[in-house]
């Protein structure tokens, strides 16, 4: 890539693209386990998925320290692109991040390594943005909680290590805990900390 490629790959109409990406994320957060299309994604360097880039430009700015996983942090084009298009400061301290970007789910740190919020300010927690390959997989999960009429079947792949156990610990910390935005191919799904997950395998 050329030295200045990080300048490109933004959006023709960032205001309306940001609005529509936000609505997809909000709807996904309000109805956990539903997959919402993100129509107008930026074109970031190849190390960052287009959906992750859309989430970053929609939600992150100079007020939101971000944490990057090893693969992203070691990719100078990605780091430059995020800096230019969001202005968000990068932190190496996962516990200080408002957003954490994980491009490789298999190397995701344990959920309790991120900011959990406090009992009085549970909102002061990290939102994890996790790159996933697909929202269909043969390991269906059963979700319940706010935003779900009774239960909702949901799957994503790849699943981070010991994810179900980690999530049940995260749920047990409620109202503290992290929220997850899953960035699939031009679509998002969310798992807010209020969601209960059971493995669908019986």
């Amino acid at each position: 890539m050329a030295e200045t490629d990080f300048l490109s790959g933004g959006l023709a109409d960032p205001v309306l693209a940001g609005q529509s990406a936000f609505r997809a994320i909000m709807q996904a957060m309000a109805e956990p386990g539903t997959v919402q299309a993100v129509a107008d994604c930026p074109t970031p360097p190849s190390g960052l998925s287009r959906t992750m880039a859309a989430i970053a430009t929609t939600l992150c700015d100079a007020d939101t320290p971000i944490w990057l996983d090893v693969a992203l942090a070691n990719d100078p084009q990605v780091v430059k692109w995020l800096a230019f298009h969001t202005g968000a400061p990068v932190t190496a301290d996962s516990g200080a991040a408002m957003f954490a970007f994980v491009s490789d789910p298999s190397s995701m740190p344990a959920l309790d390594r991120f900011a959990q919020g406090t009992d009085t300010y549970p909102d002061r927690s990290t939102t994890l943005v996790l790159a996933v390959d697909a929202f269909d997989a043969d390991q269906p999960l059963s979700l319940s909680g706010p935003g779900i009429e009774s239960t909702r079947r949901f799957a994503f792949a790849p699943l981070p290590e010991a994810f179900i156990d980690q999530w049940s610990e995260n749920r047990a910390r409620f109202p503290r805990g992290v929220d997850l935005i899953l960035a699939g191919p031009e679509a998002v799904a969310c798992l807010p900390r209020s969601t209960r997950i059971k493995s669908g395998e019986h």
Binding site: Q19, F22, R193
Partner: peptide
Amino acid sequence: KRMIRRAILKSIAVP
């Protein structure tokens, strides 16, 4: 808008 949007996502996560 970004600041308000972030607050809205947190509010949904902690009803």
